[in-house]
Design a protein around this nucleic acid. Structure first.
Lengths: 229, 229
DNA sequence: CGGCAGACTGAACAAGCGTTTAATGTATTG
DNA sequence: CAATACATTAAACGCTTGTTCAGTCTGCCG
């Protein structure tokens, strides 16, 4: 996958990998000419092999989905979902895919949805396993909790990736570990101890969910009962 | 700000507002011609007034920062930070700004950083107030916790905005309430009760923070002590 | 060996881009 | 009223884009 060992691939595969790299590094607005140069071929050949830029991206999508599907089932079963992204960022040759995934999340589309939904699935079984093992609390809505966790983690990681000052080391493993270092402690603190001292908010929301007659609690959350004066 | 009442503005202001709308709706790749059409002027006039497309975006940035700075100080003091975004999405005429902010988060840059940092500041004082009032638990690192909360919330919201199926109602208030409806319950549940049943992970991380001699706990999180067999 | 198929290139094309330019209209000012 | 300054536009410029085309090269099959 690294440019050194790209030479022995079919031209078609070389173009696909070059596109994957440049799409990930520069976004999907990158020109066909830039991709062709990265692959060491003429722009015409890119079109000759893939028909159009759009179909080239579709081929990249498919390729990434196939690769990540394998990686996932191999490793994620015995570890948390975060490890999945770590593997992608660290294992040599997979950093391009990590970059491509971040760009996909940033731009929406099929790869983003697919990655999201698969991670939700994985996290859900991971949490359910934790429940059975007695390490994780049960939830009122396990599916929603899994979606919540994935949305927060992926969204935050993507935001961090996007907002990094340009010019700083763009290596995926660097970015990922910046993110982990910044948020590991508050995350674990929240997971372990929670944040609120009373359950007023939660009780109100659950009551409203069971009987939606009263004023919706999520629109204008009233301040908690003041215990001071 | 709505197109109905744009007529009585200076052409310069009309162009700026049109740019804000189209930048937010279609992204920063939208053409100067499209912005000109939205404003009802010629493409040349856009350049005449702002010098270049880049400077036009800078003018939008500045305008948005000025507007949100006011909105914030007015309202956020007495409410949570989420209310700030809700106001933006709901109050008539501010939905364009909400869209522009989401695009800015998606693309990085100064507006994104500024919005992020200001929300971190606000959340930090909000949490500190809660601590003093006895409704929110203290944290080992209040600043990190505030950054964590903002990163997760903004990132997740941005991800949700990006991943919505194209063609569905793009009204900001719709998007925001979809997001709230999806994640309010798991968020409150987590905030109220936490997620982990024992503090093994947190203790290990805190121990490593105080004395980083052992193997770093965040690289390869060891599975929790198995209580089953 | 002849011929055909596919890989591949360099040049060109049409469309779209941001921007420039020259010209026209429209006020404001001396 | 003449003159100056500014707002505004239509047209064009130069560039980049994705894509097409005609032609060359290469290897394979009969």
């Amino acid at each position: 996958m690294s440019s050194a060992q790209r030479d022995d691939l079919t031209a078609r595969a070389r173009i696909r990998d070059a596109a994957l790299t440049r799409f990930g590094r520069d976004g999907f607005g990158v020109s066909v000419r830039a991709i062709a140069e990265e692959a060491g071929v003429s722009p015409g050949l890119v079109i000759h092999h893939f028909g159009s830029k759009e179909k080239l991206r579709a081929a990249c999508d498919e390729h990434v989905l196939r690769l990540t599907a394998n990686t996932k089932s191999e490793s994620i079963k015995r570890m948390s979902a975060a490890t999945f992204l770590e593997q992608l960022a660290e294992v040599d040759g997979y950093s391009e895919i990590f970059g491509y995934l971040m760009r996909s999340l940033q731009s929406g589309g099929q790869v983003a949805s697919s990655l999201f939904e698969r991670m939700v699935q994985d996290v859900e079984v991971y949490l359910a396993d934790g429940e059975r093992a007695g390490t994780i609390k049960p939830s009122r809505d396990p599916a929603a909790r899994a979606r919540y966790a994935v949305s927060m983690a992926l969204g935050s990681l993507m935001l961090h990736t996007t907002m990094r000052p340009p010019g700083s080391d763009p290596e995926p493993s660097t970015v990922l570990h910046e993110w982990i270092d910044a948020y590991m402690l508050p995350a674990l603190e929240l997971y372990t101890e929670g944040l609120l001292l009373n359950s007023t908010f939660l009780d109100a929301l659950v009551a409203h969910r069971d009987d939606p007659s009263e004023e919706p609690a999520e629109r204008t959350p009233q301040p908690p009962p003041d215990t001071e004066h």
